[in-house]
Design a protein around this nucleic acid. Sequence first.
DNA 1: CATAATACCTAATTCTCTTATGCATAAGAC
DNA 2: GTCTTATGCATAAGAGAATTAGGTATTATG
Lengths: 110, 110
Amino acid sequence: MHSTELLKGTLQTIILKILADHGKMYGYEITQRVKELSAGTILLTEGALYPTLHKMEAEGLLRTETEAIGKRIRKYYSLTPVGKNIVEDKVSEFIAFIKTMSTVLNVAIA
Amino acid sequence: MHSTELLKGTLQTIILKILADHGKMYGYEITQRVKELSAGTILLTEGALYPTLHKMEAEGLLRTETEAIGKRIRKYYSLTPVGKNIVEDKVSEFIAFIKTMSTVLNVAIA
DNA sequence: CATAATACCTAATTCTCTTATGCATAAGAC
DNA sequence: GTCTTATGCATAAGAGAATTAGGTATTATG
């Protein structure tokens, strides 16, 4: 498990990019996908994920559609046009940040 | 100016590595060095820096020596043996985090 | 049939940083 | 010569994003 401090500020970027790559997904599925992609080192907590998803929906970045699986409900999230527009900006911002940090820390990334 | 959210959790790593590379430095000097290395995109605020330096000193990672420059006082910080020991751990942790993130975000870094 | 996994959610707290403020000396502009 | 900027330290109140802890309920597994 990575130091969770570093993860701060990356949650929205992760959500946006994963939805951009994979299409519609539900909350629990996002946690599992991130866990899998990160080899178990990034464990999104529900207390952080769900409020963030709701916030992003309220901001018009995501939209939802509900699906009933038996008696259980799944709430699928997908990108709105606005959301699609900012994905690359967010990813680019992250990459720029990494490059700056590698200079400041005087280390090679990659 | 980078999104400051991403910066969270990196302050201690920055301080440790900069002191490791440059030897003793005082607070204001650290802010200027980081500003310079980051081409003005990372501006450490005093409200974050000073309390963090004090905390790291209290934790035994840094030690201080005061120097009078005219009537002004400079407080130089340098790494203790304990501090030196954890610098590479912190940097490695950051690099590992970056690699994980590049996989999760499905992007190439560098 | 009990436990783990799936699936959603909110509230209280914690932690880190920003913003605002304060004090004081030194240098440069005009 | 005085006014602004830069240097240099520091703390306190507040914001923001996460963790921790709690709640509800269905489905699969051993």
